[in-house]
């Protein structure tokens, strides 16, 4: 088991290294010239040249890469020219917003998919199955930004029971004391129930919209998997012991049905953590998505680079967790690694 964790971790490090090279090279070959951007459009060629030297752009790519990585680990993620702040500050303030949104979206998608998959398969009622399935197809085919606008129109514009596009909190609401910088958690930690509910209300629509397509995707995977598992003989064995149908299903079908969907769940989770440009824009959510969009438009590539690295990191870590989970849930993988011992 320890061996499994160690080999997977080593493989993850390799993956992150690859991603960092990719992020670095991609942006070097992009047409933008940071020295020119920094010096401004009217600066003379000498000034721009001096800027290049100052930025280290004249060094070899290899030394530039190592300097970049070295700085990255020391917390110097570069400087955002367009905003005039260090990248790490900007990301530090926006990452928690994206993570919080992604986390809730993932929980909605996961819990919703499990409940719906059970409803669709457990009693084998065709009508229920068809209804949820149709809804899921709708979820897979609907553009999130459009859905975001529609639900905003309904719940804010017409019914007015949920807040409009005003970010993470109501304008008069003070942010809770900073711990994790995720407002719902920080508010609970500080015991500020009012802030908690306000933050929750603001999260509800964007999280639902963001989680809708992943829910649909995950539901369909899980439904297929459950249908397959529910035909397995060991369920009949469990029932023949006198175990309640539901208990047999929960104990014997669910864990086995989850196995093939774990990888997909991990990928969905990582994608949600990285934020969404369109949904964040509609709800004025101060997350990473908006930051990266601006970074691309302003050719502010320190921001984009940091984002790529963080994204890669998220994917790799989530995949590592998934691999380890497989080992925990499925004894066959565990002894598979024991054989090579």
């Amino acid at each position: 088991m320890l061996k499994l964790v160690l080999t997977r971790t080593a493989a993850s490090l390799v993956a992150i290294f690859g991603a960092s090279i990719l992020a670095f090279v991609l942006l070097r070959v992009a047409p933008a010239d940071p020295a020119r951007l920094l010096a401004g459009p009217f600066a003379t060629e000498e000034v721009v040249e001096a800027q290049r030297v100052a930025l280290g752009l004249k060094d070899s790519l290899v030394s530039q890469y190592f300097r970049y990585i070295g700085d990255f680990f020391q917390g110097d993620w570069g400087f955002s020219f367009s905003v005039g702040r260090p990248v790490i500050d900007q990301i530090g303030s926006r990452l928690p917003a994206s993570i919080e949104l992604g986390l809730y979206a993932f929980i909605f998608a996961l819990v919703g998919a499990v409940i719906c998959a059970l409803l669709a398969t457990y009693r084998r009622r065709r009508a229920v199955d068809h209804t949820i399935n149709g809804f899921a197809l709708f979820g897979l085919g609907t553009p999130p930004f459009w859905l975001a606008l529609i639900v905003l129109l309904v719940f804010f514009g017409i019914l007015d029971i949920l807040p409009g596009p005003e970010g993470r909190l109501s304008p008069r609401q003070e942010a809770p004391p900073e711990v994790t910088r995720m407002y719902t958690i920080d508010a609970l930690l500080a015991g500020q129930l009012g802030t908690f509910f306000d933050a929750g209300k603001h999260l509800l629509l964007p999280a639902l919209v963001l989680g809708f397509a992943p829910w649909a995707f995950f539901f369909r995977l899980l439904r297929a998997s459950l249908l397959e598992v529910s035909g397995e003989q060991y369920l009949a064995t469990a029932r023949s012991k006198g175990i309640r149908r539901w208990t047999a299903f929960r104990r014997h079908a669910l864990p086995n049905a989850f196995l093939p969907t774990l990888t997909a769940a991990g990928l969905i989770f990582a994608a949600l953590l990285a934020g969404s440009v369109l949904v964040e824009s509609v709800y004025q959510w101060p997350g990473l998505g908006a930051l990266v969009r601006d970074g691309v438009i302003e050719q502010d590539y320190a921001v984009v680079q940091a984002f790529i690295l963080i994204g890669a990191f998220a994917y790799v870590v989530v995949n590592l967790v998934v691999d380890i989970l497989y080992g925990v849930i499925d004894p066959r993988t565990r002894t598979g690694s024991a054989v090579t011992k």
């Binding site: 060991y234 006198g242 014997h252 196995l259 849930i329």
Partner: peptide, 29 residues
Amino acid sequence: DDRQMQTVRGKEISIVFQDPMSALNPVKT
């Protein structure tokens, strides 16, 4: 009904299936 059958199955009457490969849950000891 199914609830009453739970006290019968496995206690008064039980079954052994054909394929021992699939009749046991692979993730439980």
